[in-house]
């Protein structure tokens, strides 16, 4: 049986990867990818805790909600990024500096 701590380790690893992607990558689509990493890390945590320590279904339900909402968020985020690409022909985060005083 896979020990409890392995799941938490993987999820912490995913979380850190997500944060690192968001801080280092300049491509907006890659940043959206980083957000997905973080959401999945949280979902994995919920399911793990649900199975190993809480012994109720709250965590499973939470994970389902996370999956649905992450999809909605990615859809809206990508739609906006596509629109931005149509207008400016770039998805580089440093180019998005029109709104600055």
């Amino acid at each position: 049986m896979i020990p409890y701590i392995a799941y938490l380790g993987i999820s912490a690893f995913l979380f850190i990867i997500g944060l690192a992607i968001m801080m280092s990558r300049k491509n907006i689509v890659a940043i959206l990818l980083g957000i997905e990493f973080i959401l999945n890390a949280a979902a994995l945590n919920f399911v793990t805790y649900s199975k190993y320590s809480a012994h109720n279904l709250d965590g499973h339900i939470f994970a389902l909600f996370i999956i649905v909402i992450a999809a909605a968020e990615a859809a809206v985020g990508l739609a906006i990024v596509i629109r931005y690409f149509q207008l400016k022909e770039t998805v580089h985060i440093d180019e998005a500096s029109e709104l600055r005083n």
């Binding site: 959206l32 957000i35 973080i38 959401l39 945590n45 809480a54 968020e73 906006i80 990024v81």
Partner: peptide, 25 residues
């Protein structure tokens, strides 16, 4: 503006969720 809002929003919601998962744990 929408793009920046979506990026910041997604990041902070993700971090919040990670916190929530440990609170639940």
């Amino acid at each position: 503006a929408g793009m920046k809002y979506a990026l910041y929003g997604g990041i902070s919601a993700g971090i919040m969720l990670f916190g929530m998962s440990h609170i639940y744990g």
